[in-house]
Design a binder for these strands. Structure first.
Lengths: 129, 129
DNA sequence: TATTGACTTAGAGTAAACTTTAAGGTTTAC
DNA sequence: GTAAACCTTAAAGTTTACTCTAAGTCAATA
């Protein structure tokens, strides 16, 4: 069992964000101590891991919420969930390919400017002589 | 020479966004017809290409604006621009590596659910018999 | 027992990057 | 020559994902 503070440390999400996610339905209601404090289970941490994974690959909180709701509805929704993940996976791959291309352009520009800088500094050095 | 509409079509940016970028200083003031209409040059298109490249690799408009301003200041700022691009390149590579790891997790989850779906449908088929 | 940190709800505030609206002027195709 | 299409600026509005504040109560630790 983990306090909200523990979970914040482990996930890198602020306590505000953790409560916000729960309120928005990204995370099932977390169990409480008799006094009403949140007690996160290993399962909750696992769920948060998947949420972060989806979020960090560009899925919107809205879509993640949809996925989580489907999960809660049980095996009836397996097909839909598989479909959702498959589409997400494709879009991530596509985005990574795009990124790769953009990265090549950045690298090209960087080399171009590096070369220009070298020439410029050579020139300055010669002028100072 | 290209109208704002042409450029919108070529870049995928809306005419609103093109004007917004110019107003915000991401793009140097575009030349005009006698009537005041924007006339984009090939150079402008080139500049927009770099802007989109940086934006699509996660650079904020603020940072892009900084980069563009440095470019306008000439060779004095070459070192700074090289530094900026180098740092950006590193951050893109790091993000891509992270994405790769997250993608593996998504793939794993997808396979897990696919298998579960297969088992579930088998079960249903057997029940229907 | 005092202090620190947790809890609640509700709602306001923030930042980025657009996106739309308002009110009007310019071009061009028929 | 006129209507449709396209242009202008300035400013307000939208969306996403938080982030913070308020105001009051409860729990745990030194």
């Amino acid at each position: 069992m983990y306090s909200i503070q523990d979970v914040s440390g482990r996930t890198g999400l602020s306590t505000h964000t953790l409560r916000y996610y729960e309120k928005e339905g990204l995370l099932s209601p977390v169990s409480r101590t008799p006094g009403g404090f949140r007690q996160y289970t290993d399962e909750d941490l696992e769920a948060l891991g998947l949420i972060c994974c989806l979020k960090n690959t560009g899925m919107s909180l809205q879509e993640i919420t949809r996925f989580v709701r489907l999960t809660r509805q049980g095996d009836e929704t397996l097909r839909e969930r598989v479909e959702l993940l498959r589409e997400h996976r494709e879009s991530v791959i596509q985005r990574m390919n795009e990124m790769q291309k953009y990265l090549e352009k950045v690298t090209w520009k960087l080399n171009f400017f590096s070369e220009k800088l070298r020439a410029y500094e050579d020139l300055k050095a010669r002028q100072e002589q």
